[in-house]
Design a binder for these strands. Structure first.
Lengths: 182, 182
DNA sequence: GACGATACGGAGCGTACGTTCCGTTTGTCA
DNA sequence: TGACAAACGGAACGTACGCTCCGTATCGTC
């Protein structure tokens, strides 16, 4: 990673940038050759830097998930844990819905992006925000972090099906509040 | 369809049955050759009866969507439109989640299965149930039939991500009730 | 500037799948 | 039962895509 030839480092960066753009637009479905062409390199070069298309995808996605996790950690200490949590929930969904790569990563049932290191950060930060909101009596008690991720995936599916319908996410948020049945 | 040779009619039925089973298990992703093998016929035979894999899929799926529509129509006249609607909503999700074919059909953003004839029946029946529930003051006013389909798709994504978690759909149902913000 | 190591590009391989084609089989009807 | 049309099966075609291979170009060093 350090004593790399100059052109190698340059190409690696170009590949990452191209992958970020292409995956964001079309998700995992984008052919690797397209990424290579967009980066202005050959397919072989992509494979010299990343062992597989999946690995490249993970590299692009984990960075972004990491950002979500940091954002969450910055919010943990704030007042009004209920609103903080719900705002964060909505913001994550809005951000992710703009990026097919994130959608695909979160939707993977096996959830590789979640189970790996950086994913754990997000998981625990999300769970922490949730716990505080529940302790404050703002969010219903009968859900946990896993449920939350499932709901995020569901909201992303909603968003994809009917884009820009802001009020549908609010339905879920209303359902999450403690006021209801539980 | 009528003056068909006996073996042709028999094979057509076998193909439909096999397609129903295979699509239900694995959705549109199942290779057509698998369906042919399961039906005990060659791939060519499948294509003599259906112009494309997609057409076969539609044939299988539309029948089932039609059932949902009839079920909805039978409920329109009942008392307590609010509970009728919400029960129906939950039941459709539960049934569909057992059948990948339905999930895939509903999730198609373009929504072919919905826009075609039989899909319209379902759409309008669903919209009618919703309208009555809203008139009865049981369901929030700020949604329409399209929103509802989006929510169904979302709930199916949730169900796929974390199977059998019955209470997650309830969150959406609680969010749909009129009690909340709107 | 020359030379060895490193990286590059893109043709090509293997696989999967939808679809078509055609030699063979089977049903129907006289 | 013979003959023709209809239907069958599955090999083969075209395409798409992940990935590999290797002859060529580029970099770093002396």
């Amino acid at each position: 990673m350090e004593k790399m030839r100059a052109d190698a480092r340059r190409n690696r960066a170009k590949v990452l940038a191209a992958a970020e753009e292409a995956f964001a637009a079309d998700g995992l479905a984008v052919p690797l050759d397209d990424i290579a062409r967009l980066a202005g390199v050959g397919a072989g070069t992509v494979y010299r830097h990343f062992p597989s298309k999946e690995a490249l995808f993970q590299a692009v996605v984990l960075e972004r998930i990491q950002q979500f996790a940091e954002e969450a950690r910055a919010l943990v200490a704030g007042d009004d844990p209920g609103e903080i949590f719900l705002d964060y929930f909505v913001r994550v969904i809005k951000q992710a819905s703009l990026n097919r790569a994130i959608c695909d990563a979160l939707a993977e049932t096996s959830g590789h992006a979640f189970k790996a290191g950086a994913g754990d950060d997000f998981r625990s930060a999300l769970a922490e925000l949730l716990r505080r909101a529940q302790d404050a009596g703002a969010v219903r008690q009968d859900i946990d972090g896993d449920d939350l991720r499932a709901l995020i995936v569901g909201c992303l599916a909603v968003e994809r099906y009917s884009p820009g319908s802001r009020h549908l996410v609010r339905i879920v948020v209303d359902g999450l509040r403690a006021s209801a049945g539980n």
